[in-house]
Structures are given as structure tokens and as C-alpha cells.
Design a protein around this nucleic acid. Structure first.
Lengths: 236, 236
DNA sequence: CCGAAAAAGATTGCATACGATTTTTGTGCA
DNA sequence: TGCACAAAAATCGTATGCAATCTTTTTCGG
């Protein structure tokens, strides 16, 4: 049994190893342990997870589909470095989809779901209270998980997958363009949304979600700067 | 210039052959030249397109991500056979997304776009007038292309890709569960939507789109039947 | 000393090879 | 004939090898 197996046996009984590697890399990207622009060479990924380039390549292809890595022919794969325009499109998509997801979830939410939401909110709160970069990462991830939980409650597998992609890309965007930690604010908004769900006020849940997304995007600084392009050119 | 060109010209010149094979297979699936449940073996696809299994496998993996192909470990890839529940989710997703796309497109549409829409509608009309299964296939494809054209006008690459997936899956669903050819009706609705776009009546365009999707779904017979499961069991 | 061309090294794209698993075919027995 | 079981064929999952392409280093002329 190799290292990778040891790590991921608990994670999930994924059909193939490529998917497990994909999940792991995605977490690393979303957590910002892998900075935008970082090169992900097939060989390196392969040796890191103790698989051949074939499998590593498949994992990178999956991430490329999700928009988390960008591949250039004969050059390789890099952690995506979304432009301000892409960032705007991500949030435009979320503004379009998530209020509807909130309504759908509101119509199907059970008491067990509410309990799951409460647990999720608690975890979020814990990470916000903590200090340090690790807690910060966990906080971003937990914030995204709230939206994914909502999507799963909505009961539409297709929309759920779309949301997974949008949340992951949002994490990248926030990492790149986030100005402050308006996270506490985000947390209170999450709490409000759960409250609306609990009282079956679907219209309110939808409206709160829309405002929430607006607030997240308002915290971004999407002005074009030379920074990212330069860093990109220097292959950093 | 067809829709596919329209979509991918902006994206990038096709990176590799796998993508070309993917496009080809997708067309075949959407056109129903490949029936749901058909086995797509890596070797067969490879020899058919004169590439190695490696490349064929990559193409099948892409289709699997789009939901057009279902892969089973150690068994292979099959053209997707969406269940009635999946069909409902596809249309629920479209009801959520496409009215918003119509509004976005309405706010950005140019006279050149209108001309493209007119050409698209003309082509649709031609296929409807013709008889025979080939025209029928082209008609379904043209109908989908209308929605993809609208998505491209909306100017959001992420939503555009979501729509590509949803339209492709819709074609599968219609092929499986379509009752009649309410296509003429669909055509007239497309015409109306273009009219709304032309007069910049965004609210109306959005409303017409929602009704249009409802009409398409209303033409489906989503009752569960033994048929597909049996055919599936027989590996046909 | 600096810049450009050339060689060396690294990395990707793709094909092929081989073990593992599944499916099909063939055979013996009731 | 019909069924269980084993051999054979087909197919998949994965590793590895080679050519093409890109990147880096070295070398040489100015």
C-alpha cells in the first residue's frame, strides 16, 4: 500500500485513482495551498501520488474541465489564474443560479437538513474565531461548503455539479481578488438564510442569497493590475 | 459557419485530437445516430478515428463529464440513458438558467446577432419543411443551436458551457421521451423570442423563454416504463 | 560584457505493452 | 435439451517508451 492509498482510503471509495487525485488537487487549489499560476507537471503529480503519468494526466484533464486548471498544448497544466472578466462571469452565474437553488432547497428542506445547516454554521463560526492562515483556509472552504450543502438539499444533481464548479472557481477568485475578510458578514448572512429556510420563507431565502452574492462580489477588487500578468509571465 | 465554430473560435483552436473526437461523438449522440445505451468501446472509437486508445479514452472521459456518456469501471462507456428523474432535472435546470440568459442576451444583442438569429431560424424552418429521418435529426440539432446561439450572445462563457451541456442532454431526453414533433410550435416560439430581443423587450424575452421550455417539457412522456430498462439489460 | 544561436535537458502527446477484469464461447454432465 | 463450469477472447486500467515540442543552459561572435 502506498502513501496515496493510505491517505485516501478513508476519503471515499472512488472508482479510480484519477478521481481521488482530482479531489485532492482541487482541495489544495481551493484552500490556496496551490497558488494560481503554479505549474502542475504530469510527472510531478504522478510521482507525488505514486501513479503513472497516465493517471495524473487524467486527473489534470478533469480539473481542466472544471476550470480550475488551464492547460496549454505542449506546455502543461497550471492552476487557473482567472481574469477579472472571468471573475465577473463566475459571480454573474451565481447570481443567476443560486437564488433559484435557494427556492428549490426551501421547498424540500427537512428538519435533518436544518440540523446539518446548523452544524455547518457552527463549524464556520469556529474557524472565524480562530486565528492563523490555516483557520483562514478552512474558513473559506467552510463558507463554500455552506453553498454546496444548500445545493445538495435542492435535490438537482446537475445544478449541484454546476455549483461545485462555481464555488471552487469562486474560491480561486476570492483568493486572487479578495480585499478584506468580510467573512463574518458572510457568516451572519448564511445564518439568516438558514433562518428563512427554517420558516419556509422561500422568497426571502432567495432574496437573501442574491444579496449575499452581491456582498461577496462587492468585497472583490476587480480592477486590472499588472501584478498577475507579470507573475504569470515570470512563471511563478 | 456553424454554432460549434461560433462557440469554440473564441475559446481556442482545438488543443488536441481528443477534443475533435469528442465533438464528433457528441454530434452523433445529439443527432441520435448513436442510440442511448450504445456501447462505445475505446478500441472501436480509436480505430474508427484512427487514433490510439489513449486519445479515444480521453474523448470518452470528456463526454462522461458532460453527462452524455456513462462509464462503468472495467466495463466501458455507454451512450447515456437518462432516467425520467434526470430528464426532469435537466429541464428544471434550463428553467432556472435560460430565462436569465435571455435577459443577458437581450441586453447585449447587436444587429449582427439578430441577423445570425434570422439565419438560424431560416435553417430551422427548412428542416421542418423537409421530410425524412435525416431532416428530423437536423431539425433537433438546429433547435438546440438556437439556444446555444442565444447563450453565446449572452456573453458569459461559463453559462455558455453549462448550456452546451444542458442542450446536449436535452436532445438525448427528447430522443428518449419525446412524444410528438411539437417542433413547429417550438420554431414559432423561437421566432417570437427573437422578436422580443429585437425590440429590446427583455422581460418578454425571458417570459417567452420560460414558456418555451415548459412547452418542450410538456411534450415529453416521463412516465417510467419497462422499455428502457429492458433495452438496457439487453445491452442494446 | 552582452546578446543571439545552438545544444542539452525537461516535458508533453501519443502509441503500445501487459496484467486484471469482464464477457463470450465451448464443453461435459445430468 | 439445459445448465454449470472452465477456457478463450475481448476489453479495460495502467505503466512505459519514443518522438515532438518547449525550456534552459551553454557557447560563440560582436
Amino acid at each position: 500500500m502506498n502513501i496515496a492509498d493510505h491517505i485516501y482510503s478513508t476519503d471515499s471509495a472512488n472508482q479510480d485513482r484519477a478521481q481521488a487525485i482530482r479531489d485532492n488537487l482541487r482541495d489544495a487549489i481551493v484552500d490556496r495551498r496551490l497558488a494560481p499560476g503554479t505549474k502542475l507537471s504530469e510527472g510531478e503529480v504522478g510521482t507525488l501520488f505514486d501513479v503513472s503519468r497516465t493517471v495524473a494526466r487524467a486527473a489534470l484533464q478533469m480539473l481542466s474541465f472544471e476550470g480550475l486548471v488551464r492547460t496549454e498544448r505542449n506546455r502543461g497544466a497550471f492552476v487557473a489564474n482567472p481574469s477579472p472578466e472571468e471573475a465577473r462571469q463566475v459571480f454573474a452565474s451565481r447570481r443567476l443560479i443560486e437564488p433559484g437553488i435557494a427556492i428549490a432547497a426551501c421547498g424540500r428542506v427537512t428538519s435533518a437538513d436544518i440540523a446539518a445547516f446548523r452544524a455547518q454554521l457552527d463549524e464556520e463560526g469556529r474557524f472565524i474565531a480562530e486565528r492563523g492562515p490555516t483557520a483562514r483556509r478552512s474558513e473559506i472552504k467552510a463558507s463554500g461548503d455552506f453553498h454546496l450543502l444548500l445545493a445538495s438539499v435542492a435535490g438537482n444533481a446537475i445544478l449541484q455539479r454546476f455549483m461545485e464548479e462555481l464555488v471552487a472557481r469562486s474560491s480561486l477568485v476570492i483568493a486572487l481578488y479578495g480585499r478584506s475578510g468580510a467573512s463574518a458578514c458572510g457568516h451572519s448572512e448564511h445564518t439568516e438564510i438558514v433562518g428563512a429556510l427554517e420558516s419556509s420563507d422561500c422568497e426571502r431565502a432567495s432574496r437573501l442569497m442574491l444579496h449575499h452574492i452581491d456582498h461577496i462580489e462587492a468585497d472583490l477588487d476587480l480592477r486590472v493590475r499588472a501584478g498577475p500578468a507579470l507573475r504569470e509571465a515570470l512563471n511563478f
